[in-house]
Design a protein around this nucleic acid. Sequence first.
DNA 1: GTCTATAGTCCGATAGAC
DNA 2: GTCTATCGGACTATAGAC
Lengths: 185, 185
Amino acid sequence: MARWEPDARGRLMLAALALYTERGYEQTTVADIAQRAGVTERTFFRHFTDKREVLFDGSATLQSTVVAAIADAPSDALPLDVIGAAMERAAVSMQDRRDFARQRAAIIAATPSLHERELLKLATLSTAAATALQTRGVPPVPAALAAELGVAVFKVAFEQWISDSPDFPTCIRAALAELSALHRA
Amino acid sequence: MARWEPDARGRLMLAALALYTERGYEQTTVADIAQRAGVTERTFFRHFTDKREVLFDGSATLQSTVVAAIADAPSDALPLDVIGAAMERAAVSMQDRRDFARQRAAIIAATPSLHERELLKLATLSTAAATALQTRGVPPVPAALAAELGVAVFKVAFEQWISDSPDFPTCIRAALAELSALHRA
DNA sequence: GTCTATAGTCCGATAGAC
DNA sequence: GTCTATCGGACTATAGAC
């Protein structure tokens, strides 16, 4: 038998999600999370730089998905179409975890400090998307704007997805249509 | 002679700005700031809820400006034009503090934790703008999208303003033009 | 204005995998 | 032997409670 149970990281993420839901983020200490996961506080901080980060493990993967989708788009595609397709790809990759997304969103909405971290992750995603667009030859300013638009669409569509509608990619397409309508009006 | 020097709040803000610039945000303690301002640590936390907030005193005013501008727009104006005009009004109100804006932006850019707070303020601004648009009869989803677009334009224009170009409102108009170009392309 | 809880860092030690 | 994951404890500063 191994000296430690495997996957301390995964256990910490599950414990944190459960405790943040049960008693709230501020009312949960890192010691509580570590205890439920069967490790020490020290181990928590080796896996996650701070108490918030334990809820944001998937953001690096999401970013890779978006950046790859931008790179993969046909070379003659317009920036806005590239971004739209990338966001749709991101939505597809999250589609099978709606319950998790919902639970996580509820915790974040209830906690300003977590909302801040979420916004930082989205801003990082936006910067990465802008860089990926620049690699395709889009100049910096349009690239930055298109990336910000993509994230705006993602945010709005995400809200729709977890509240109303079961299909995330469809929400993305609807939000993109609303965006075009704003400009055509 | 007064029992205390007046304007402790203002002195705390100046002291914080100076110290964050001199030695960096993390290397500055609240005790350092309080000492330079000639008050106690306790006084700092009476004026500002946390160590970051001391750099964000203007954001409530900015938000009022934007919301008022949206409310004041002609009733037949289109959402995107309303938002554009509101952002331009915000730019006008900041125009005479370019050096301050630049110094503050440098500190924030160097400090992830401050970047987070900045993003939260902008997200709050976006929500307030969306609400103001809804008051004008714009449905929730287009209102949220238009507000996010406005903040995106503000961010991009702000970057241009503090790096390149002396006139903030002009930067806003240029960014709005780039935004339209993205959709016409 | 003092007192305290807790986040987050740093040091070193330990034990298994390879 | 090296590499990696764990643990223990002491320490500072923030932020809130009293």
